[in-house]
Amino acid sequence: MNAGDEREYAAYVTARLPALHRAAYLLTGDAHRADDIVQATLTCLYVHWRRARAADNTDAYVHRMLTHQFLDEKRLAWSRVLLGLAHRDRPAPAFPFEDHHLVHEALRKLPKGQRAVLVLRFLCDLSVEETASALRCSAGNVKSQTSRALEAMRSLLPSRSQT
């Protein structure tokens, strides 16, 4: 990667890192695993930066990479080994969990596929087709999983208008 490409990569990662971290944390429900798959995704993105930049939708391309890291436990194990990082403590965020805690707990109870559909479609703003591509399944499957995931979340959460 030349210096210009690396500057572009750095700008993209700086801008997108919070969103990728959020998506990874909601997918995994675990701070360490989220860091693992974000790091593995960004490493892969660095290697394939020109291809990602040339994609019609770079964000969708990167979210697909992130999702594959999440769904592929073998790659996850590989990325963990590469991550020989010392953990740096930072101030913890505020934790008002009237809704947040319930939502996160509900998300954690979903199967991986349903959770991934919710995160990709509603947090990452991927289309049904882009979500299907990321999850390596059909658009119909994405629709049915979305419906079931929303139904499950409804059963686990009180109506927001009621709280």
Binding site: V13, T14, A31, L85, A86, R88, A92, P93, L118, V119
Partner: peptide, 20 residues
Amino acid sequence: LREIPLPPTRITTEHAISMG
């Protein structure tokens, strides 16, 4: 989904470049 508080992350842009 956007309101769920996040734990701290150890990932930085500099480290991503280094690992890349």
